[in-house]
Amino acid sequence: MVSRIECGVYFTFFNGGFYMSRVIAIVEDDVDQRDNYADALRNQGYEIITFGSRPEALAHFQNSGSQLPDLAILDIMLEKEMDGGFDLCRELRALSPNLPIIFLTARDSDIDRVSGLRLDAWDYLTKPLSPEVLGVRVATLFRIVESLSKGGVTSNPSEGVLHRGDLEIDPNSMSISWKGEHLNFTLTEFWLVEALARRPGMVKSYDNLMQVTRQTYVERNTINGYVRRVRRKFKEIDPSFEYIQTVFGVGYRWQPAE
């Protein structure tokens, strides 16, 4: 992990060849948390702009003079607006359909999670979340962005690619394909599939999987929800997909090859 953070992109080629630090917008009404995350991310070399409310952030982004950030990290409850983050997400989507957005919130119900992901958020993270972990995610995200901008070609294509039967996991581009078809996973989902598939047949307990999500506190039901969504995405491509097995009460495992 640490190595990935260290190789986080300070200056990279982006947007038609300008070298500049990546700009991350943090919209969070709690000033302590906002500043802590901002400090941590600044230490990693990102340029951080912070906002305490949705109108404030929106006013800034809609200003024709200002540029959109490279990544937006949004809290959902903003001051008195219960769903301020969701609304802002929608408004940002209207400004840029491709802007990577991460929700970082204390709300961890399935409904909120699903709502967030439906708005095409790249990830949905629940507090408390370590700034270090956030840094890792941000770095990973930018790597994927970079990879996508290069047409999906990674710098080192064959390195570390994991093959499990029809499953192919590319840790560099953080992409997963099944029977040659690309699957669209969030970061957390990617890590869950990677953790299960890395050791087929071995049971990954809920505690293991919680660590895999790289979030501090994750409930068992949240894990189940993640697995359900992962299965559904596999089954959309392959209705007979049954490789992720439930070990009831304990966790999950990837079915070993026959």
């Binding site: 948390q33 408390p128 979340l129 700034p131």
Partner: peptide, 20 residues
Amino acid sequence: AHEIKNPINVINSSLENLEK
């Protein structure tokens, strides 16, 4: 729990930043 998560997050991130 929701209300506690925010202060925990403050403490957690502060501790981490302190370490840094």
